[in-house]
């Protein structure tokens, strides 16, 4: 099972590091990262493996949202299937 983390907000030092640290702590393997800067808005999309999470999906989601709040970023963790079903036939 895979999920997608999206991070949107003002660019600053250590966004990627903060998010990756949470992933590592929860045993979520990062499979792919894609980041861009659109008119100073930082956008990162990260594909992670959630098969072997140490503390479950909800806990990871809460921790990521916590990091988002601390850094004034919008962070979402969503199951990959929702994007696949909407954008792929």
């Amino acid at each position: 099972m895979r999920a997608i983390i999206t991070v949107i907000g003002k660019d600053k030092v250590s966004i990627v590091a903060n998010i990756s640290t949470v992933c590592a702590k929860n045993n979520a393997n990062i499979l792919d990262i894609n980041q861009t800067l659109l008119q100073e808005v930082f956008t990162m999309v990260m594909l992670i493996d959630i098969e072997h999470l140490s503390d479950g999906f909800t806990s990871l989601k809460n921790q990521l949202e916590e990091v988002g709040k601390e850094n004034e970023l919008q962070v979402h963790l969503m199951h990959e299937d929702i994007f696949n079903s909407m954008h792929r036939i």
Partner: peptide, 16 residues
């Protein structure tokens, strides 16, 4: 991997 624009489109639909 999915296109970033597609992912953001979905998130925008839900959030906004």
């Amino acid at each position: 991997m999915l296109k970033t624009t597609d992912i953001l489109e979905t998130i925008k639909m839900i959030q906004e």
